[in-house]
Design a binder for these strands. Structure first.
Lengths: 239, 239
DNA sequence: TCACATACTTACACTAAGTGCAAGTTTGCA
DNA sequence: TGCAAACTTGCACTTAGTGTAAGTATGTGA
C-alpha cells in the first residue's frame, strides 16, 4: 500500500524527506486521526456495523475529506497493515547485499515479532476475520508486499535474474509469512504475551526453514519441531 | 469460490447430483447467461465502463435478479476464474494418495495448460489487469484455492500433520502457480498458441522445481533453464 | 388436470459508497 | 500584507447492495 492511499488531496508533490512543513504535518495528523477513528469504531462496533460517515464524524472531518485520504473504508483500516508491512520491507532492504534472499526475508520477518509492531496487526487480524471486504484488503496488502519484495530482490540480484524465480520466490516467502501469522493467530488469538510472540517467531523460522528445505519431510509432530534444521536442510524424499 | 456465489435464491437444497430438474437447469442457464453477459461487456466496453444494470439488461434479467446470483459485479466475472481453479482442484484430488503434494500440485497445474481451460482465464487476466476491484477478486480466487488445497492435503496427509506445514506449503504452491501465470502473461499476453502454452507449461514446471529445490540457485539465465532438474534438486548454496 | 406449496423473479424503496464541482478556508511565500 | 496554491467542505449525482412484498413459474399429490 503505502502510496496507494494518497488521494486527490495529495496527488502531486511529495516533498521527499526534508522540511516537514506545516501542511505535511497537518495532513499526516488528519490521516492518522481518520485511521485511528476507523480502528476505534471497528473495536467498539465490530466490522460492518459502522459507516464512512461515522468515521469522518468521529475524526472530526467531513465525509468528503475522508475520501480525499482513503479510497474506501477498508483502505483506512488497511493502513494499519500497511504500516506493519512497510516496516518489514524496510528491514528487508537494510539487509546486506550478499545475504541470500531467504535469509534476508527471515531476518525481516523476525523484526515483526516484537510487540510494538505486531500488536496493531494482530488486533486488526482478530477484528477482521469475519468480514469479506476487510479480508480482501488484507490480501491486497500482502500482494503489495510481494511486489515490493520482487523489486527489492531484483535490484539486489541484478536484472539478469529470471522473473519467474523472483515472482515464485517472493510469493512463496510472503505465503510463508502469511501462513505463520495465520497459524499463530488461530492458536493464540490476540494474545501478545512474550510466550505467544515467541511462538510466532518460531513459526516464522519454521516456515522459512520449510521453504528453504523444499518442504521435504511431512513431519507428523507439532510445529515446534517441524523444521528442525533450517540451515542444514535434509534433501531426501523430496517430490 | 464455487459455492461462494450461490446466493439467496439458491441458499438451501443443492440436490446433490441426480435429477437436473427443470429448476436447476433454469438457474444454471440464468447464471451462466449473466456471467457471459458480464464477460461480453468487459470485452466490448473495457473494465469499469459498465454497470450491474447493464449486465442485467444484457442478460435479460432484472437488476435484483443479478444480485440474487452474484454478490457483486466482480463476482460475476470471477466465476470464470473459479471454474478454472475448480478444474485444477479436481485434478489435484484425483492424484494418487501416495504421491507427494508437490508432485500432485504440479500435475494438477499441468492440466491447466491446455487451451480449453486456460483460454477464458487468460482472457480474464488480460482484461482484468488494469482494474483494482477485479484484481482483488482474482486474489480472492487464489486464496480460496489455497484453502481448498490445505483441506485436500490435510485429508491426504492425515490430521497429525502440522498446520504450519500445510499452510506454508499450500500457499507456496499457489504462489508458484500464480507466478508462472503472471510471468507467462507478461511475456506472451493473451497468446494461446501451442508455443505459448508450452512456455506456460514450462514455467509451471520450473516454478514447482524451484520450490522443491528450496529456491537454491539464483540462476542468471532465462527461465527456460532456471530449474533444470526439478526431480534431482541441487542442494547447495541454500540459505 | 387441478390445486397448492415452494422456488424464483421482479418492482420499489431505501441506505451507503464513491466522485465531480465550485465555493470557502488555510498555508506558503514574496 | 497580499496573492497563489493546497486543502476542506457542502451539494448533487450515479451506482452498489439489500429488504420486502407481490407476482410468475415449477413440482407434487390427489
Amino acid at each position: 500500500m503505502t502510496e496507494t492511499s494518497s488521494q486527490e488531496a495529495t496527488a502531486e508533490s511529495p516533498p521527499e524527506q526534508s522540511t516537514p512543513s506545516r501542511r505535511e504535518l497537518n495532513k499526516a495528523a488528519t490521516r492518522s486521526s481518520i485511521a485511528s477513528a476507523a480502528l476505534d469504531l471497528l473495536r467498539s462496533n465490530g466490522s460492518g456495523n459502522f459507516t464512512v460517515e461515522d468515521i469522518a464524524a468521529s475524526a472530526g472531518v467531513s465525509r468528503r475529506t475522508f475520501f480525499n485520504y482513503f479510497p474506501s473504508l477498508e483502505a483506512a483500516l488497511a493502513s494499519v497493515a500497511d504500516g506493519f508491512m512497510d516496516h518489514a520491507l524496510e528491514q528487508f532492504r537494510l539487509r546486506p547485499e550478499e545475504e541470500s534472499i531467504l535469509e534476508s526475508a527471515q531476518a525481516a520477518l523476525m523484526a515483526l515479532a516484537d510487540p510494538m509492531s505486531v500488536a496493531p496487526m494482530a488486533e486488526l487480524f482478530s477484528l477482521t476475520q469475519d468480514n469479506r471486504q476487510l479480508a480482501r484488503s488484507e490480501l491486497e496488502a500482502w500482494e503489495h508486499c510481494t511486489e515490493q519484495i520482487i523489486d527489492a530482490a531484483r535490484s539486489r540480484l541484478g536484472t539478469g535474474i529470471s522473473e519467474l524465480y523472483l515472482h515464485a520466490l517472493a510469493g512463496s516467502v510472503i505465503s510463508c509469512g502469511k501462513a505463520a501469522m495465520t497459524v499463530w493467530f488461530t492458536e493464540h488469538g490476540p494474545d501478545l504475551s512474550p510466550k505467544s510472540l515467541a511462538a510466532l517467531r518460531q513459526h516464522l523460522i519454521d516456515a522459512m526453514g520449510l521453504l528453504g528445505a523444499g518442504f521435504a519431510p511431512p513431519s507428523h509432530t507439532s510445529s515446534q519441531t517441524a523444521a528442525a534444521s533450517p540451515s542444514v536442510p535434509t534433501t531426501k524424499d523430496r517430490f
